[in-house]
Design a protein around this nucleic acid. Structure first.
Length: 590
RNA sequence: GCCGCUGUGGCUCAGAGGUAGAGCAGCUCACUCGUAAUGAGCAGGUCGUGAGUUCGAUUCUCACCAGCGGCUCCA
C-alpha cells in the first residue's frame, strides 16, 4: 500500500478527491458543466460552469454528498476512446469544455476517461482504485477563475478542497493553517504596528509606521553599506520621466498597463507627458550616458534604494507583498562581455549573503525565466540575442550547480531572469530576488564604450536586486519570525520595565545611557503592575525586557528577560549592554 | 479588472426594519506593586461612503471605497 507521504500517491489521492467533488456536484446540480480539476500542493480544486454561485451552505451540501460517494466505495475504471468516440461521449453529456480540451490534445495522445459509477470524466490519470480511501476532506473556499486562465474567457467557479487518508491528518492540517494565519504578515504586521493602510490613501499604498519604518531603515543601511563595500556607486534618480524615456526603453509599448501616466490619458500618445517610473533601469542608463566610457571604466555598478510605481489591477494588491508603490534595492551592472559571468556570480553571491544575513536563505528555490519565441509581442529583440543571453545564464547556473525550474515565457521583456523564489507562511510562492541579463537596452539607449581596439561596443547589462523589495522582504521576515525580528533589525532592542514609580527616574537615566551606547531602548513608565508590563512586552514580541526594582538600583544591575533564552537573572548594566551590542554586531539571526 | 465573501467606537466581536452593546485599549482616581492582564469610574460610534425602497434603514436594494480568498500578472 503506497504511503501518503509519497508524492505521486498523494497527487493521485488528491486528483481522485477532485473527481469525487465533481461527481458530488453533478449529482446535486446536473446542469453544471465541468472544466478542469487537478491536484495541487495541499489538495485539489475543480472548476465548474454554474449559473448560480456556490454558497457556503452549498459547500456543506456538496461535502455531505462527497461523504456519501466515499461511503459507496465506488471503483474507478479507466477506459480509452478514439477522438471521435470521446467527442461523441462528451457531446452527449453536454460537456462543452471537455470537447474543447479533447480538440486541443495532440494527435498521438491516448484519450482516456475515468468512470466512477454514473460519473465519467476525461482524465489522463492515474487514479485510486476506489473512492474509499478518501476518508477525510474539507472544501476550503471558492474562487472565480477564468477558463484556461485567460481573462477574455468566461469566469468559472472554482471550489478548493483538501483531503487526507484519515481525520487526524486533516485536523493537523487545519491546525497548521490556523497557526499560519497567526503569522500572516498582513494581520500580524498591522496588529504589531509595523504598517497600516487607510482608504483615504488607497490600495497598495501602505503607511510604514515607526516600527516598520525603523526596520526598513536598518535593512537599507545594511544593504547600502554592503553594496558600497562591493564596489557599487550610488545614484539618486527622479521618480518620474517624460514618456520619451520609456519609448526608448520599450516600457511605453511593453509595460504601459503597469505604469501610472500623469495628465490626460487621451493625449498621452501625442503630447509629451510624464509617467511615474515602474523600473529604474532607464534612469541609471542616463547616468551612464553622461560621458564617453572606456573599457577601463567597466564594469560600472550602480545601486539605488529605488521607489517604484506600478499600476497593479485593483484585485491584485496584497499586504506588503503586492503594492502600487514599493522600494527596491535596485542596481544595474554595465559591463563588457568578459565580465558577464563573474558579475552575474557576484550578484548572486550578494543576494545569497543578504538572504543569509536576514535568515531567509532557507525555503528558497530558483527559477530560470525564459522568453517565449511564439509570443513576440511581449518581448523585444532578436531570437539570436535571446539565445545568447539565455545560454549565458544557463551556463552560469550549470557552473554553479544551482538547481532550477524553468519559467517558460516569464522573462522580462528585455531579457531572461534568474528569480529566487520563496514561500510565504501559507506556502504561496513569490519572487524575492531577481537577476536579469539584458542584451537589448544598451543598444536602444545607444550606450557604448570604447574598446581596446578603439571600436565602439555596446555593453551588457545585469539588472539585479540584492535584498529584493524592502516591503516584501519585511513581510516575509514578519512571517518567518512571527513578528519577533532578529535584534539587529528590530525597531526596539529592549524595554526597561521599572517596578514602581520611584524607579522611573533611574529607568529613564539608564535608558538614556543605553541609547548613548547605540541601543534602541524604551521605558514602560506607566503605573501598571510588572506582570502586565511583561505580558504586553511579550505580546509586542520584544527580544529583551529589563526589570528594574529596588534590588537592581542598589546593585546597578538589571533583571534580564530574553525572548529566546528566558530569564537570565540579574546582570550588570555594562554586561547587558555588551551582550546586546555583540548580538547586534554579529547580526545574529535565530 | 473579473468572481466570491466581508466592512458596527483605536482593536476583537455581539445585535436588530423603529435611530446600538461587550471585552481590550484610552482617560481619571485609588493601589506603589518583583516576572504573561489590580480595582473603580469616565469618555468614545451620524453602524465604510453615496443614492434608492420605506412612514422610518445602520439593518433591504444598487453603486462606489476599502479588506480578505482566488484568477491573471509580478518585486
Amino acid at each position: 500500500m503506497p504511503h501518503f507521504s509519497d508524492e505521486l500517491y498523494r497527487k493521485t489521492f488528491h486528483h481522485t478527491s477532485a473527481h469525487i467533488l465533481a461527481h458530488a456536484v453533478k449529482r446535486l446540480y446536473p446542469s453544471v458543466k465541468l472544466a478542469i480539476g487537478p491536484a495541487i500542493e495541499d489538495g485539489f480544486y475543480y472548476d465548474f460552469d454554474h449559473d448560480d454561485t456556490f454558497s457556503p451552505e452549498d459547500l456543506i451540501k456538496i461535502e455531505d454528498e462527497m461523504q456519501q460517494i466515499v461511503k459507496e466505495k465506488i471503483p474507478l475504471e479507466r477506459f480509452e476512446l478514439s477522438r471521435q468516440e470521446a467527442r461523441a461521449l462528451m457531446d452527449e453529456k453536454g460537456e462543452t469544455y471537455k470537447i474543447e480540451l479533447i480538440d486541443d490534445l495532440p494527435d498521438d495522445t491516448i484519450i482516456s476517461f475515468y468512470r466512477q459509477g454514473d460519473f465519467v470524466d476525461l482524465c489522463s490519470g492515474p487514479h485510486l482504485a476506489s473512492t474509499e480511501p478518501v476518508k477525510a476532506f474539507k472544501l476550503t473556499h471558492t474562487a472565480g477563475a477564468y477558463w484556461r486562465g485567460n481573462e477574455k474567457n468566461k469566469m468559472l467557479q472554482r471550489i478548493y478542497g483538501v483531503s487526507f487518508p484519515d481525520k487526524k491528518q486533516l485536523k493537523i492540517y487545519l491546525e497548521q493553517l490556523e497557526e499560519a494565519r497567526k503569522r500572516d504578515h498582513n494581520k500580524l504586521g498591522r496588529e504589531l504596528g509595523f504598517f497600516t493602510t487607510t482608504e483615504y490613501i488607497g490600495q497598495g499604498l501602505p503607511i510604514m509606521l515607526p516600527k516598520g519604518a525603523r526596520v526598513l531603515q536598518q535593512l537599507q543601511r545594511f544593504v547600502e553599506d554592503e553594496e558600497e563595500k562591493r564596489g557599487y556607486q550610488l545614484t539618486k534618480t527622479p521618480l518620474m520621466a517624460k514618456s520619451d524615456l520609456y519609448k526608448i526603453s520599450g516600457h511605453w509599448y511593453h509595460y504601459r498597463d503597469g505604469m501610472f501616466i500623469l495628465g490626460d490619458q487621451e493625449q498621452a500618445d501625442t503630447e509629451e507627458v510624464l509617467a511615474l517610473r515602474p523600473m529604474t533601469c532607464p534612469f541609471q542608463f542616463q547616468a551612464y550616458l553622461t560621458r564617453t566610457r572606456s573599457y577601463r571604466d567597466l564594469p560600472i555598478r550602480y545601486a539605488e534604494t529605488s521607489t517604484l510605481f506600478r499600476n497593479e489591477a485593483s484585485g491584485e494588491m496584497h499586504g506588503l507583498i503586492r503594492l502600487r508603490q514599493f522600494t527596491i534595492s535596485e542596481g544595474h551592472i554595465i559591463c563588457a562581455p568578459e565580465h558577464l559571468e563573474s558579475e552575474f556570480k557576484d550578484s548572486l553571491d550578494l543576494a545569497s549573503f543578504m538572504l543569509k544575513s536576514i535568515g531567509l536563505d532557507e525555503d528558497i528555490s530558483y527559477r530560470f525565466s525564459t522568453w517565449d519565441p511564439n509570443n513576440r509581442e511581449k518581448f523585444i529583440g532578436a531570437a539570436e540575442q535571446w539565445d545568447l543571453a539565455q545560454n549565458a545564464m544557463q551556463g552560469i547556473l550549470k557552473d554553479l550547480s544551482i538547481p532550477y525550474k524553468v519559467g517558460f515565457g516569464e522573462a522580462a521583456f528585455y531579457g531572461p531572469k534568474l528569480d529566487i523564489q520563496i514561500k510565504n507562511v501559507f506556502g504561496k510562492e513569490d519572487t524575492l530576488i531577481t537577476i536579469q541579463i539584458d542584451f537589448q537596452l544598451a543598444e536602444r539607449f545607444q550606450m557604448t564604450y570604447i574598446d581596446r581596439d578603439g571600436s565602439k561596443q555596446h555593453p551588457m547589462i545585469i539588472h539585479r536586486t540584492s535584498i529584493g523589495c524592502y516591503e516584501r522582504t519585511l513581510a516575509l521576515l514578519i512571517e518567518k519570525y512571527s513578528g519577533a525580528l532578529p535584534l539587529w533589525m528590530a525597531s526596539e532592542h529592549a524595554r526597561l520595565l521599572p517596578i514602581a514609580e520611584r524607579h522611573f527616574d533611574d529607568a529613564q537615566k539608564l535608558a538614556d545611557q543605553m541609547r548613548q551606547a547605540g541601543l534602541r531602548v524604551t521605558v514602560d513608565d506607566r503605573n501598571e503592575k510588572i506582570g502586565k508590563k511583561i505580558r504586553e512586552g511579550q505580546m509586542d514580541k520584544l527580544q529583551y525586557m529589563f526589570i528594574l526594582g529596588d534590588r537592581e538600583v542598589t546593585e546597578n544591575s538589571l533583571s534580564v528577560r530574553s525572548r529566546l533564552d528566558g530569564d537570565l537573572g540579574s546582570l550588570s548594566v555594562d554586561s547587558v549592554v555588551e551582550r546586546l551590542k555583540r548580538e547586534i554586531d554579529e547580526k545574529r539571526v535565530r
